[in-house]
Simulated scan of single mutants.
Amino acid sequence: MTDLIWLGPLRQGQHQESLLLPLALEAVAAGFPSPADDYVEAAIDLNGVLIPRPSSTFLMRVDGEAMRGEGVHHGDLLVVDRSVAPRPGSTVVAVHEGRFVLRRLEGRPGRWRLEASDPNTPAIALCGENPDLLIWGVVMHAVHHLCAPSSRSRRRGAVTRASPEALGVEP
């Protein structure tokens, strides 16, 4: 089962300062532009691009490999928006049996199910009367690390395991 580690909500005004990073003019193919080339197009603020609705956005870290086939791996950082309505094919965070799970929403009204990309993980059928299941938010972005972050960078942000109850979700 893929568990999620709650990193906390982003609040309006929590990050007053923008961090503008250079945005390359060209997409990278298999090489790197010459240092002599003028390759910086503009500046980009990743908070504005990745988190357009801070008051309904949470960050969560993935714990497990059930969604590896979707390109979401253990340790990845998820940007989850609770204000976005899930649609078929959406990757969602749900509460199932009192725990957060990461799955893809499939089916149609009356026959919804949550599926993992791992074929050994059974689908979870959504029943309208099932109080143990709740779609908590839609995953907007997954930040995948190509090289593991150092232990020093992991200490900067407080990471806690939070139950759905701690976030105001009743199982």
Rank of each mutant, 00 (worst) to 15 (best):
S90I: 08
N120R: 09
D63E: 14
S55I: 05
R61H: 05
G69T: 07
I135F: 04
M60W: 02
D132F: 08
F100A: 09
P119D: 08
H141Q: 12
A142R: 04
V95G: 04
V84S: 07
P119V: 11
S153E: 11
E129M: 00
V72C: 09
N47Y: 05
D132C: 11
A158C: 12
D63T: 01
L102K: 10
D81Q: 11
P149F: 04
S151W: 01
N47H: 13
V159P: 00
L146P: 00
A43K: 11
N47E: 08
C147D: 08
F100D: 04
V95E: 04
S83T: 07
W136K: 05
R99S: 10
V93I: 13
A116G: 10
E115R: 15
R161D: 14
N47Q: 15
A43L: 09
C127R: 10
M67N: 12
L126M: 15
A142W: 02
N130I: 01
P86T: 03
C127L: 09
S150A: 05
R68W: 04
L134A: 06
G69F: 07
V49T: 00
I44V: 15
P131L: 08
G110E: 05
P122T: 00
R53C: 03
S56F: 13
R68V: 10
L114T: 05
A85L: 12
P109R: 15
M60Q: 03
P54C: 03
T121E: 13
I135W: 00
V139E: 08
R161W: 15
G69I: 02
A66C: 06
S150M: 09
D63K: 14
V92L: 06
R113C: 11
S163H: 04
V139W: 05
S151T: 06
R161L: 09
P109K: 14
D81N: 15
T121P: 00
D118R: 03
L102E: 06
R61M: 12
G71D: 12
G69E: 02
A116L: 06
P164V: 04
E97I: 04
R156P: 00
P109D: 14
V139I: 08
N120D: 14
E97S: 10
G71Q: 13
G157C: 08
P54F: 02
L134I: 01
S90G: 02
P131Y: 10
A125C: 06
R156A: 13
E115M: 14
R152Q: 12
M67I: 09
M67A: 07
L146T: 02
